[in-house]
């Protein structure tokens, strides 16, 4: 329970950065934190106490493995997270080149 709750706290920290920060890089960091929180929560759901990693090393022994499905889904999600972060940072860099600031309040003022 504590383990799931700390993932939710990490999610809320990331959401705090996304909603209330005015610096664009801080907003990107907040999105990255949200991605970590979701991946970690999903991987924690599949954990089984006393089990091994889902890799067969001996053929005839009975298998006692953790849940492989959350691991398979998170594996692709981690790589996608880097792609979306890179796209976000590219747009942020374009905005900086045009307005010379990271402050979204200033950017809103300078529009037009």
């Amino acid at each position: 329970m504590i383990v799931f709750a700390s993932c939710i706290i990490l999610f809320l920290i990331g959401l705090y950065a996304v909603v209330t920060k005015r610096n664009l890089i801080k907003i990107a960091i907040g999105f990255a934190l949200i991605e970590y929180a979701i991946n970690l929560l999903f991987a924690f759901v599949g954990f089984k106490r006393g089990a091994l990693a889902p890799i067969i090393t001996q053929l005839d022994t009975p298998h006692n493995f953790v849940d492989p499905i959350p691991q398979a889904l998170v594996l692709t999600a981690i790589v996608i997270a880097l792609g979306t972060t890179a796209l976000m940072l590219t747009i942020i860099m374009r905005i900086y080149n045009r307005y010379k600031t990271f402050d979204i309040a200033e950017i809103r003022k300078l529009r037009g």
Partner: peptide
């Protein structure tokens, strides 16, 4: 696919001089 894609992301973001010229 993944290696070439991430390497081209790095090249476009970190190595190119295009954006800073204007």
């Amino acid at each position: 696919k993944v290696g070439a894609g991430l390497f081209s992301i790095f090249l476009a973001l970190a190595a190119m001089k295009y954006v800073m010229e204007d």
